[in-house]
Design a binder for these strands. Structure first.
Lengths: 341, 341
DNA sequence: TTGAAAGCGCTAACAA
DNA sequence: TTGTTAGCGCTTTCAA
């Protein structure tokens, strides 16, 4: 009874309570809980397990972390997990992490450099075993003055990041696949580009891919509308393109979100997609499949990237690497495929 | 130099390194870092701060947690953060938590009871200061045998949860607002319902709201299509309704995701929304605004719920409470408003 | 096979 | 105003 009460009163049960209850030392409890490193007689082990059960003992992960020097937790810093692409990415990462016995601590930088700093700092203070992140900074190393002493992997890096491990999708290739498809299969010769603002000195690789593919095909470059990688940005970009003297025959949007915005602008103008104008986009989130019409996309290999990111974090390797994953072309209806002639 | 090397070598700098470097005791370092509880002479404090700076010292959050008995971390268990509603919810929660000095540990149960259990267990082992969760279980208390010794708040609860604190949106009211609008403003007299499978003995409160509003208006109940609360579920439900002898004049979908699926089914059938059939839905995620046509919705007050959830976790209060937040009616085009006659 | 005990980094009561 | 020191709960070496 007094046990009952004590537990109700929220006295956390510790290993020494268990030891006392089972009539053994705390070391033995440890051996049982961790299944080593010393052997324990079966009968003793059973007594300990019963005590654990009865007392409702649960090892304190933090204390163990302090002693062992590893926290079994990793940090994930995203700009904004309500962006569907990152949400899908996060699910994959969390799944892999959990299978790996790692908990995931999440932070949203919301595009604010200062907040990003705070989050990194907090995570390092928690001695996470690793840090996965996308950075607000286009180029500068956001961690420079934070001197992280744990592995860091930049998980949405189009370009190599000096001195860091990084990975991302091959944006140039994805863009090229999409544009090539519009040219080869749908004979579009005027293909517009919707892309983000050029914050970075380096151009968006999707812009490269679009440009090179058009040039290689001997086609003129279509109009470019630059705006945020959001639905709102795409909407504004779409309106911009619609205000042009001559409507392009197709639009390549650099993110699903932008494409969704573009579609809205086109619909509001009473345009039919793909018959009046084709639209394709980059990312391949679930949302793209349920847009109207369903979007033909270059789908990023989110699961593969998540697994690779966790691996880069855990396994030894060069301090600077950059892995690029090829996106997959997913044909749906917005490009003109599967349409009645 | 040797300092340099030592740091490179990844020897974590501890409070006693700082103390030695500054020529003070570890207690003083603590007083400076925590700004108390004892006063420190300004000149001493400066010396300590310089040492901290030079050595790149960062307090070990885990050690502090062990000593103080609070972890400054909370757990969040969602079914799936790639569901946009939960993603938006999570952003709000993380933001509030961060402002509150709490880190957020995220877990996705993916609809698997066993996984949910594992996540809860892990989080309790980490001694989170509180647990925010949605449960896979419709009714049974998923925590019963886990004896959580921290505050738990069920954050997406349509009904009170026995013995627990919980909160959610007033689904019945939201449904009623939407249906009433379709009746009063758009004179729709045949309104279908798309809702989830009845896993729970308790009916979905949105079904209640829909039913009562129709009955109060003296209208017949429209057809019901039951399917998952996903885009796919909505798509299947939409097809089901389209196969009926008589098409309803409007559809109320219980989630944005379902509405998106319904819209796809309608579009594929060549139906115009809202002129051929109106569609409204529940949730009000960002996606709903960019659907085609933009969806009229009952928007859940995500930010308010997130703040309230954190408050319920932190502040003392009754062990069992259930707070319901009224959704807001957001009129867009899918109901027929703003359409040319 | 088991136990005693040191110590992970930190806080804070107590002493000076 | 500063220092000494006892733990927080755990792992693991070393001795029995």
């Amino acid at each position: 009874m007094s046990n009952q009460v004590a537990r109700e009163v929220k006295s956390a049960v510790t290993r020494s309570d268990v030891a006392r209850h089972a009539g053994v030392s705390t070391a033995v409890v440890s051996y049982v809980v961790n299944n080593g490193p010393r052997p324990v007689a079966p009968s003793t082990a059973t007594r300990v397990r019963n005590a654990i059960q009865e007392l409702g003992y649960r090892p304190n992960t933090g204390a163990r972390a302090l002693r062992r020097g590893v926290s079994d937790a990793i940090g994930l810093i995203l700009v904004d997990i309500s962006n569907p692409f990152f949400a899908e990415y996060a699910v994959e990462i969390e799944t892999v992490a959990h299978q790996d016995g790692q908990a995931l601590i999440l932070g949203n930088s919301l595009g604010q450099a200062e907040l990003e700093r705070e989050l990194v700092d907090d995570l390092l203070g928690r001695r996470v075993d690793g840090l996965l992140m996308t950075s607000v900074y286009a180029d500068a190393d956001p961690l420079a003055d934070l001197r992280p002493d744990v592995p860091v992997v930049m998980i949405d890096a189009a370009h190599p990041v000096p001195g860091r491990r990084s990975l991302g999708s091959d944006h140039a290739q994805g863009a090229a696949m999409l544009v090539q498809h519009l040219i080869d299969v749908h004979q579009r010769s005027s293909i517009a580009l919707v892309v983000g603002h050029g914050q970075s000195p380096k151009p968006d690789r999707r812009e490269d891919g679009w440009k090179r593919t058009l040039m290689a095909a001997g086609l003129p470059l279509g109009p470019i509308a630059r705006n945020a990688y959001t639905r709102e940005g795409g909407y504004a970009a779409g309106q911009e393109l619609l205000a042009l003297d001559q409507l392009p025959q197709a639009i390549f949007a650099s993110s699903d979100q932008q494409a969704i915005g573009v579609l809205r602008a086109l619909h509001e103008h009473g345009l039919e997609v793909p018959s009046d104008i084709a639209v394709v986009s980059y990312d391949g989130t679930a949302e793209s499949e349920f847009a109207w019409p369903p979007l033909t996309v270059a789908r990023q290999q989110v699961a593969a990237m998540a697994a690779a990111a966790m691996k880069m974090l855990t396994e030894p390797g060069p301090d600077e690497v950059h892995r690029l994953f090829p996106p997959e072309l997913v044909i749906r209806r917005s490009c003109g495929c599967g349409q009645p002639r």
